[in-house]
Design a protein around this nucleic acid. Sequence first.
DNA 1: TTGAAAACTGGCCGATCGGTCAGGCAAGCT
DNA 2: AGCTTGCCTGACCGATCGGCCAGTTTTCAA
Lengths: 189, 189
Amino acid sequence: MAESTPARERTRREIVQQAMTLFASNGYNATSLQDIATAAGCSKATVLYHFNGKAAVLAAVLSPSQQALKEVVSQAEQLPPERSQELAIVRFVELAVEMRGLIAVLQDVLTVIDTMPEFDELVADGIKLTELMAGQGADRLELDIAKFAVNGLLGECRHPGERNDAELRDLCETALRRLLKPAHPSSGS
Amino acid sequence: MAESTPARERTRREIVQQAMTLFASNGYNATSLQDIATAAGCSKATVLYHFNGKAAVLAAVLSPSQQALKEVVSQAEQLPPERSQELAIVRFVELAVEMRGLIAVLQDVLTVIDTMPEFDELVADGIKLTELMAGQGADRLELDIAKFAVNGLLGECRHPGERNDAELRDLCETALRRLLKPAHPSSGS
DNA sequence: TTGAAAACTGGCCGATCGGTCAGGCAAGCT
DNA sequence: AGCTTGCCTGACCGATCGGCCAGTTTTCAA
C-alpha cells in the first residue's frame, strides 16, 4: 500500500468521488454526510474535518464542471457571432453529456442556489451560454427558445434512457439545431 | 359567517390551497407540515387529522392536474393519428401553462414518485402523452425528441420569466412545432 | 527515538422532521 | 340536562439531520 499521494489528498479525493456518485443517484438534499462518510470509508467527522460544511462538499463536487463551463463560455465569447453559436452548441452538448450525472444535482439545488455565493459564477456562465446559443441578434422569442432548449437538454441528460454517450450527443444536437435559428450565417459573407 | 360548507370541507380546502402555494414556491420536500398548518391557520395535528400523511396532502394538491391530464390523453387517444398529435400539443401546452406552479412540485418529487403508488397513473399518462406528441409512426429518435420537448416545456413553465399566460403558451407552441415532426400530414389524404 | 503536527474518530448537541395520542370543545339529537 | 359525534389541539415521540469538540491514532521530520 505504498500510496504516493499524501493521506490528505487521498482522503479528500475519495470523499469527493463518493459524494459525486451519491449526489448523482439520490440528489443533494437526500444525501447525508453520514452516507458520504460511509461510502468513503471514513467517519462523518472526517468529512467535516476536510470540508467546511456540506455545501463545501457540493462545491468540490461541482468544481470541475464549473471550470469546464467557464472555459466553454470564455472560448465562445472570443469568436465571431456565427462561429460562437456553433461552438456553444457543440461544446455545451458535449459538456452536458459528459457531466450528465451532476445535472440532477444542479436541478436539485437550483431553488436554493441563490443562497450559496459559491455558485454565482456557475449561474452567470449558464446564462451567458444560453445567450450565446441563441445567437447575437436574437430577440426575446429566440432567447426564450434557447432557454427552452437548455431545459430540454438538461432534462434529457437527467433521464438518458439506455442511450450511450455518442447517441445521446447526437440526439441533443439534433434537437438543438431544430430549435435554434442560425445567427444570419449568410448575411455578411 | 354562515358558511354553507361544513367545517370539514372548509378546512380541507384551505389546507390544500395553502399547501399548493407552499409546494409551488418552496418545493415539496422543503415544505413541512408545520408550514402548511401555519399558513392554513390550524395546527399540524389538524392537517394529519384530515389527510393520512404528507403524501396524501400532495395527492390532494395534484389531483386536479392529474384528472386534467388524464382527460387530455383520453380525448387524444380517440382521434386519428394526425389530429391526435395536434390536439396533444395544443392541450398539453395549455395544461402546462395553467398548472405551471405545480410543475416544480412534480420535478421535486420525480425521483421518489416511483415509491408513491398514488401517482402511477399520472406517470403513465405523462408517458402516453409524450408518445402521442411524437406522432404515431415515430421511431426512437422522434420519441426521444418528444421527451426532449416535454422536458423543455416543463422547465420553461417552471421559470416563466415575466411572460403572461398567452405569451408563454405561444412560446411553448412555437418550440414544440419546431421540434416535433408532423405525423405524415399529407401522405394519406 | 521522540515529540509535535496532522489526520481521524466517537460521542454529543440543538434543531427539525413526520407522525401519534389523549383529551378539549362545540353542535345536534334524545 | 345528558350524551354522542365530529373537529380540533398541545404535548410528546423516535428518527435523522448538520455540525462541533475533546481526545486518540498516525505520520514524519529532527
